[in-house]
């Protein structure tokens, strides 16, 4: 136990320190990589809340990343190029508020329908709704359709300069820690206990007098909002926002992270994101056809290696 705890601590410390050291010795590439890693890990933490703890297999969580990113991109676009004055701003707090409201609302409205269904229906419907968001942004020419939206500005937040890569990284890292802590808190609460009860035996929870639908809906909205926030960071990080962020293979990658890392664990999503980002980097530096080994690996993980990395650690 002691060893595992210090191992986890070591991972977090290295994730914080190493990228900054690399950056100082001129290898800024690793800092960017770590920033991206943290952002993806936040989204995976959000997905883990419903997939791992609640047993809701959403194949559409990239939609929230996209919504969050467009919540930065669209106001910034109007702030830069005019139009829609009520929306035009580069104020980071407004960006975050819009992202939370929109991703929460999207989760609420789609959740109302998705959560009436179970199993495969749920998987496919979440997928379909995220595709709806994808086609919605593809259809809006003003925001660049397929080509996406380039914004030459980042969200303005007092005392923080997101244009500085180190600050961008630190914001992402501390957000990750915050959301890991928050999700941990939620899953240990009464609500979290009920959620795991629902994952285990939904029918029984209904007969115990719980409004299962409402609990699932709330978890679903929470999860969407966390991913929406990750989207705000992603939009700021890339300053290029395109429907491709919502593509369903992005959702698949998020699921891969959560499952590879180990569902329903605090560190799982982070482990998963680390492995995913490293794999992607290493494989794509070897071959542009990196999806081939990645796909084979995914199949191998599913066929032979269940329970994820966290289960290896807890053995």
């Amino acid at each position: 136990m002691q060893f595992i705890r210090s191992f986890k601590f070591l991972i977090l410390v290295s994730l914080l320190v190493l990228p900054i050291i690399f950056n100082q010795i001129g290898m800024s590439f690793y800092l960017d990589l770590a920033t991206r890693l943290c952002i993806l890990a936040i989204a995976a933490v959000g997905l883990n809340l419903i997939l791992g703890y609640g047993g809701m297999i959403s194949f559409g969580h990239a939609a929230y990343l996209g919504l969050g990113a467009y919540a930065v991109g669209i106001p910034a676009h109007h702030w830069l190029y005019g139009g829609l004055d009520f929306l035009a701003t580069n104020n980071g707090f407004i960006h975050i508020t819009i992202a939370i409201v929109i991703s929460g609302l999207f989760a609420f409205l789609t959740g109302l329908i998705c959560l009436k269904t179970k199993g495969v229906y749920f998987i496919m419907i979440t997928m379909a709704f995220s595709q709806m968001a994808y086609y919605l942004f593809v259809s809006i020419e003003e925001y660049g359709s397929d080509d996406g939206l380039v914004i030459n500005t980042r969200s303005q937040i007092p005392l923080i300069n997101l244009d500085d890569p180190i600050q961008m990284f630190l914001v992402s890292f501390s957000s990750l820690i915050f959301f890991m802590w928050l999700v941990q808190l939620i899953t240990k609460s009464n609500f979290g206990l009920i959620l795991s009860g629902i994952k285990d035996n939904e029918a029984r929870m209904v007969s115990l007098g719980y409004n299962v639908y409402l609990h699932k809906l709330i978890a679903f909205v929470f999860s969407g909002i966390i991913c929406g926030f990750a989207g705000v960071l992603l939009g700021n990080f890339t300053t290029f926002i395109s429907p491709e962020m919502i593509d369903w293979s992005r959702s698949g990658e998020l699921m891969f992270m959560v499952i590879l890392g180990g569902v329903a664990t605090v560190m799982g999503p982070l482990f998963g994101a680390i492995v995913f980002v490293i794999l992607e980097e290493v494989l794509s530096s070897i071959t542009i056809y990196w999806h081939l080994p990645f796909g084979l690996l995914l199949i191998a993980v599913v066929l032979f290696f269940r329970g994820g990395l966290s289960s290896l650690l807890s053995k």
Binding site: L185, I186, K188, S189, N190, F191, G192, L193, I194, L208, G209, Y210, N211, H215, I218
Partner: peptide, 12 residues
């Protein structure tokens, strides 16, 4: 538990 079912942050 049912009455506190929307208690999100207090340890159960």
């Amino acid at each position: 538990t049912r009455e506190n079912s929307f208690n999100f942050f207090k340890a159960s």
